[in-house]
Simulated scan of single mutants.
Amino acid sequence: MAIALSLLSALAYGVSDFLGGIFAKRSSSWQVAVVGQTSSGVISLLAALIVATTPGSADLMYGALAGLGGGFGVAFLYRGLATARMSVVAPISAIGTALIPVVVGLVTGDRPSWVAMLGIVFAFPAIALISRVVDDNPAHQGGVIDGVLAGVGFGLLFTFLGQVGDDAGLYPLAISQVTSVFGVIVTATVLGHAWVPRGRRVWSALVMGPLGVTAQAAFLYATHHGLLSIVSVISSLYPASTVLLASVLLRERIHGWQGVGLVFAALAVALVAWG
């Protein structure tokens, strides 16, 4: 169950990132982030009201901290996707997304089997190979920096969501989604960017709401059935779908080493599932 939910999370994140990049190229990346995260927040809050639970204060706190990390991450991810190649920014962000919760999980007591651990090991070169693009364009180099910053934010998102209790329900998820909006706004304000949605095009990002809720909810429930170190690394393979979509729909070329990275990603999933 944990592997299936992690893969669902990765797929939803990958499709959401692809759409976010498309919308950010047509409008302000910060405004797209605000609209997309607000849409997710409204949907997750409605879902939380339907699923009657009573989460503890610690669960709500972890949800809020996760949201701040997620808001920071999505702001830089969309900025990078708008100014650089999708096949550069998204994979780089995944390295930090996977590394931080894997380290935290192992330090706090996760003990994967040796087969699953081998799968985790394979996942990192998979991400690195998918990320490897030879490009001297200065704008693309800026995308690398945005990818790194996004990875830190998403790594914190995964880490804090992984601390939410099994019986906390969806309120921590709703808190996370709502808080992420404030994370985007604060980041945009500090960097001097306009974040108030303007124009008709930016509202297309509303369709990202269901994808964002699906991605985070699947990850949250996956951590209830599996180890954080395993769930996070499988969910962090989301760039594979982003790269494939960019290749098919935007005609971005997949280099040979990226193809090898996709094979390594499949092998990582298979090993973790077997373990």
Rank of each mutant, 00 (worst) to 15 (best):
S6M: 00
L7R: 09
L8W: 01
A10W: 01
G14L: 02
V15Q: 12
V15N: 09
F18H: 05
L19F: 15
G20E: 02
G21M: 08
G21L: 09
F23G: 03
K25A: 10
S28Y: 06
W30K: 14
Q31R: 13
V32M: 08
A33V: 02
V34P: 02
I43V: 14
A47L: 15
T54C: 11
P55E: 09
M61L: 15
Y62R: 03
G69S: 06
Y78L: 07
A82V: 08
V88W: 00
V88D: 03
V89C: 05
I92L: 13
V102C: 01
V102F: 02
V107F: 03
V107K: 06
T108S: 14
D110S: 00
A116D: 00
M117L: 14
L118D: 10
I120L: 12
F122S: 05
A126G: 06
D135M: 10
N137E: 15
A139M: 15
H140V: 15
H140W: 04
Q141H: 13
G147W: 03
G151H: 00
G151Y: 00
V152I: 14
G155Q: 00
F158Q: 01
L170R: 03
L173T: 07
A174Q: 03
V178P: 05
I185C: 03
V186W: 12
L191N: 15
G192F: 08
H193M: 13
W195A: 07
G199E: 00
R200F: 13
R200K: 14
R200G: 13
R200V: 07
S204K: 14
A215D: 04
Q216A: 15
L220K: 01
T223L: 00
G226R: 02
A240P: 11
S241N: 13
T242C: 03
V243T: 09
A246Y: 07
A246K: 04
L249V: 15
R253I: 10
A265Q: 03
